[in-house]
């Protein structure tokens, strides 16, 4: 999966935050809507779309969406 597609899928896990603000450099945990539920949705999305398992700690160790993308792709 390319990073642009990953960002799109990542953005789909949010209901209220506009798609346009999501970029590779977005510090996603600073978004108002970010919470444990979105975190679970991201874990589930990565599992479904890429067949890879990540943990809540993995997500917390990342700052930007690109960090997360790199971490997921290295699994």
């Amino acid at each position: 999966m390319e990073i642009t597609q990953f960002i799109e899928k990542f953005a789909e896990q949010f209901e209220e935050t506009p798609r346009s603000i999501f970029a590779a450099t977005t510090d996603f945990k600073s978004l108002d809507e970010w919470d444990s539920l979105v975190s679970l949705s991201v874990i589930s999305m990565v599992d479904e779309e890429l067949g890879k398992r990540i943990t809540g700690a993995d997500i917390r160790s990342c700052t930007t969406i690109e960090d997360l993308y790199n971490l997921v792709m290295s699994k």
Binding site: L40, S44, D47, T55, G56
Partner: peptide
């Protein structure tokens, strides 16, 4: 929570 969630799904 996230470990349990991963386990279930």
């Amino acid at each position: 929570g996230d470990l349990v969630f991963n386990f279930i799904i």
